[in-house]
Nucleic acid binder design. Sequence first.
DNA 1: CGGCCACATCACGCCTGTTTCATGCGGGCT
DNA 2: AGCCCGCATGAAACAGGCGTGATGTGGCCG
Lengths: 225, 225
Amino acid sequence: MRVTTVLLAEDDSAISDPLSRALEREGYKVLVAPDGNAALSAALYNDINLVILDLGLPGTDGLEICRRIRDSGRDLLVLMLTARTDEVDFIVGLDAGADDYVGKPFRLAELLARVRALLRRREPEVLEISGVRMEARARRVLVDGAEVSLANKEFELLRALMTRAGQVVPREDIIDEVWHDPSLLTSKTLDMHISWLRRKLAGPNGGVDHRIATVRGVGFRFDSD
Amino acid sequence: MRVTTVLLAEDDSAISDPLSRALEREGYKVLVAPDGNAALSAALYNDINLVILDLGLPGTDGLEICRRIRDSGRDLLVLMLTARTDEVDFIVGLDAGADDYVGKPFRLAELLARVRALLRRREPEVLEISGVRMEARARRVLVDGAEVSLANKEFELLRALMTRAGQVVPREDIIDEVWHDPSLLTSKTLDMHISWLRRKLAGPNGGVDHRIATVRGVGFRFDSD
DNA sequence: CGGCCACATCACGCCTGTTTCATGCGGGCT
DNA sequence: AGCCCGCATGAAACAGGCGTGATGTGGCCG
């Protein structure tokens, strides 16, 4: 599973509606659960990476849900959301095993930033394969020691390939991950970016890049030598 | 990067437990002391950078602990934490030598922000990267040995970039740190200051500055050569 | 061998993010 | 008051990112 999935456990559609749209725009797959039970079962039986959990959910108590999620041993992040901003709740919330805590009202940008920050923990800081070194936080890529400057999409594309080096990554997966938009499925845009990326990876002397292999009818593969 | 150690002097484990987890997540090493004596000896005999000191600690009085820490001459920061939020305490607390003061109940985000802000003061007195020497207390900057005079915002901006040299600092983070005002996010003001800063860093002969790199759509990076 | 299909590239052009210029405002200093 | 400096902002120049249609290429299958 490459695409990050967020479960939004929130009953107020005045919140969940725009928020889920914002999250989708950020490239996450979003599930919405309008009450405690739905949230819990969604969290346990789907492949979720992060739960945004409103404490004021109807049905099972939010804290209880959080605890049960923790007890289940699943590796997912919990970001608590609540109208009550006093310390008691935040303490109790963190104690129940939440990874972070945002009080309402919140700024959308802040919430998104927190989500990004939480998810960043699961990304490796530097990846080095076949002479290509990718430094995530510096957003920098070195090929055989020399820095090459990649555009945003190129960088994401390379990351998508490198994090699964040695395996074929289907076109569809790449598009999900880099463009977050299945409507590009039929487009040649991806090929274009592959082309640019290969050229940059090949170095300035313009040789042919041997690292990104095409698998006809399926996708691409970043070879680990 | 050195590890920053925080001493959490707090007896209520309902607070210290989750709070220490939150601090650890921020990347600090955390020690917990459940009473006054433990706090004092931990502060004096361990390599602590910052103490979060609950005034309501059992054993030795919190203010007294603070004074003793100060008297010991150790270079550490004290952030006071107390249920009593009236200004009398605040005054007394600062008088005892606290560097900052947070009343309960507090928001987690706020406490963490204060901690970060305090620790920023501890940042190295002089930072020297890629030929740029920044003397924090003197508020002076030398580029290849020659002093350049920076305006306030320029200085803060440069500091924000230099303290995270080698990493991309997102526009949003910079604005948080330098302007404390998210409404500037959409504005070109930051770019303006970047522009001025680059010009000054480039030196009088007006060459192009190579140190501050733009990362399109993300932020800026101060390159360590 | 011929045709088809998937992929690679080229050339173009829009659009968004960045840089810079010019301008104005306000606060501190003389 | 008059001046200078720091700083925000609008407009305009500019650059690079990125999607698309046209066109080339090579493999695969009949």
